[in-house]
Amino acid sequence: MTDYMTTTTELPPYFFFPWFLLDMGLTLTAKLAYALLLDRARLSQLNGWTDEAGRVYIIFPIEKIAEMLGKSMTTAKNVLAELEAAGLIERKRQQFSKPNHIYVKLPDGQKFSRP
């Protein structure tokens, strides 16, 4: 059974989907992945995960990204490549056996208010 939402309804956990993604020529899976990565970046920001230049990074294994998206490892890799080509993320290799850092980027001049 489902209930109607009221002014006092407690909402389930969710993450934000940036409005600017709607206008970008990305696959739907890439848009969803970006929203997921942006949510993780917010947590890294709150926890102070920054590099020597003060840039926030996330550590998010491809296996976990694929699992959360309900997609294959190949699709997850392709989506990360799509986001990197669009300039929305940057991946930095770390030393041997250390996980890569993913930097989530925001488009230049982007306004963050609703249309």
Rank of each mutant, 00 (worst) to 15 (best):
N47D: 10
A33M: 04
I59K: 13
Q110C: 12
M73P: 05
L26S: 06
A41E: 07
T9E: 08
M5L: 13
Y14E: 06
G54E: 07
F60H: 11
K64N: 08
T6D: 07
M24R: 13
T75F: 01
L38W: 06
P12F: 08
A81S: 12
L80V: 02
A85Q: 14
L69M: 15
D39C: 06
K77V: 07
H101N: 09
I65L: 15
L37Y: 00
Q45N: 12
L26Q: 02
M73E: 03
D39K: 11
M73C: 07
G70D: 12
K105N: 08
A66N: 11
Y57R: 00
F96V: 13
A41F: 01
G48E: 09
L22K: 03
A30E: 01
A33V: 08
M1A: 01
F20Y: 14
A81I: 04
I65V: 15
G109L: 07
L11K: 13
Q94T: 13
Q110P: 04
V56M: 05
F96T: 15
K98P: 01
M5Y: 08
L88T: 04
P12I: 06
L88R: 11
S113W: 00
L43Q: 10
P107T: 13
L88G: 06
L69C: 10
A86R: 09
T74I: 15
G25Y: 04
T8W: 04
P13H: 14
W49H: 06
L26F: 10
E63I: 06
K77E: 05
T6R: 14
L88F: 03
G25K: 07
A85E: 13
N47P: 00
S72R: 13
K31P: 07
L36P: 09
L80D: 04
Y4M: 09
S113V: 03
G54P: 03
N78E: 12
P13Y: 09
K71G: 05
R55A: 08
E82V: 10
A35Y: 01
P115F: 06
E52A: 13
F20G: 01
S72G: 14
W49K: 10
I59A: 00
N100D: 12
A33K: 02
D51K: 05
T74R: 12
A41P: 01
D108W: 00
G109T: 11
V104L: 01
M1E: 13
I58W: 05
T74C: 02
R93V: 02
K98W: 00
Q94P: 03
F112Y: 02
Q45R: 14
M5Q: 10
D108N: 07
D108F: 02
G48A: 12
Y14V: 08
S113E: 06
A66H: 11
M5T: 15
Q45P: 00
Y14W: 14
L43R: 09
E90C: 00
D108A: 13
I65C: 07
A66V: 10
S72I: 07
P18Q: 03
Q45C: 02
R114K: 12
T50V: 15
I102T: 11
T50W: 00
K98E: 15
A66F: 09
F96W: 11
A33T: 15
S97P: 00
P99G: 09
F60A: 11
M68S: 14
G70F: 07
T6P: 05
L21V: 11
A41M: 02
W49C: 11
Y34W: 04
F15W: 14
A66I: 10
M1W: 01
P18C: 05
D3K: 09
L22T: 06
L69K: 10
Q110E: 15
L11G: 02
